[in-house]
Amino acid sequence: MPFVVPRSADAPPADWASYAMTTLGVLPLVWRRRAPVTVLVTILAVGGAYKLTIDGPGQPLPYAALIAFYTVALLCAARVRLAVGGLTVLAVALSVGWNTGTARELLFTLFVSGAAYALGRLQHTRQAYTAAVEDRAEQLERANRIEAEQAAARERARIAREMHDILSHAVSIMIVQAEAGPVAVRRAPERAEAAFDAIAETGRDAMAQLRTMLGVLRTDHASPRRPPPGIEELADLLDRVRGSGLEVAYERTGAVRALPAALEATVHRVVQEALTNVVKHAGASRVAVTLEYGPHALGVTVTDDGRGPARAVPAAAGGGQGRGPGHGPGGNGHGHGLIGIRERAAAHGGTARSGPAPGGRGFELRVSLVTSPPEVGN
């Protein structure tokens, strides 16, 4: 304003040298974030030179110096801030003594400088808080993304297990029935019709289960979905296996009771996978399925009288010996069956063991699933 508003006649005029020196005292602010201390010292030096050489119309407050001091408080370390603060107080005292030498001007200048310093520290705190909040939000977003990816991976693995169990079982039964069909047509036509009916029924059941499972992948949730198969549906599963010519025994021991739907679905899939591998690979004539209800666990045992272990392989969760690839209830040609059974058992805090059947003939799969945590002290 002293360069625009007319001044009194006894005041020094506003000439081009005053404009140039005033501008020179402001330009260093461009670099204040890179070198705040250097900029502050430069501005104070230019201000002193202005007073000594030109003594033109000055500003009522050293705005550029206050902004530079604010930047020092905002960006510099504590040791630097203390040193610069002491030098600033000294510079203020010298400037006031040179100008009016009054306590009023000294207190006012110190107050304004202190306010600039306080604003710098408050802005530093605000920026640190904002950075912390943004960092926390970024970490939370990253954690949510990782959790979503892990959930998607678990869901893909679950769907893969379900599709493997459904398709492997259905196709195995259908192949066995189809291979027996031509023989039955020549020797016992009435059995051929039953074989073809079994193929159709197995296909329809597999399609229904696949529709139910694939419905999870659709965005349209309007269509109803039937619940996953449980222990009660084992009877139908065993009947289809009997239709392939395999003798199947089924027994439940212990305190039979209703279990959570997820646990019953696991039992169904474990038995289904075990029977599928018996039909495909074991060359057995008889298989026994036993469910043993304990106080806190459910045992599932599938035993056949087939070829037995071809060679020792790593067992499923919990130890034991497995059958070689492509043999028995413990595995299939690629080992996915045994892996799937192990994963299902582990999901319910259980174990899966496989090895030779009692007596050395055939193969046995034993799965233990936790139904309820044991009481403390038991």
Rank of each mutant, 00 (worst) to 15 (best):
R32V: 15
R286T: 09
Q150W: 06
P62N: 12
V26S: 11
A103G: 15
T125D: 14
R33T: 11
L52V: 15
Y129R: 14
A198L: 11
P229D: 01
Y293D: 02
P2F: 09
E273D: 15
L119A: 14
V92A: 06
V39C: 14
A93Y: 13
G319N: 05
L246Y: 00
P295G: 06
L238A: 02
D236S: 12
L298R: 01
S8Y: 09
I339K: 02
E364I: 02
V89K: 01
I159M: 09
L87K: 01
V37I: 14
H296M: 03
G215L: 03
A152Q: 09
H169L: 11
A9W: 10
A357P: 00
T125A: 15
I159Q: 06
A208I: 08
L298M: 10
R186W: 12
L298Y: 04
V39M: 05
P12K: 08
R158A: 10
I159W: 00
G377L: 10
E162M: 05
A206H: 08
V370M: 11
A103E: 13
G349P: 05
L52K: 06
G120D: 02
V112F: 10
F3W: 14
N277H: 05
H169Y: 05
T266Y: 03
M213F: 02
G359P: 08
A160I: 01
E134L: 13
P13W: 06
A261W: 08
I199D: 01
T303L: 02
Y70C: 03
L29M: 11
Q209H: 07
N99I: 08
L107N: 02
V92Y: 09
N99Y: 14
E251N: 05
E201Q: 12
Q209M: 09
G318P: 04
P224V: 05
A91I: 11
S95I: 07
E134C: 04
A255T: 13
G245M: 10
A184N: 12
P374L: 08
G101L: 11
Y19F: 10
L234N: 02
T71N: 02
R104W: 15
Q209P: 01
T351V: 13
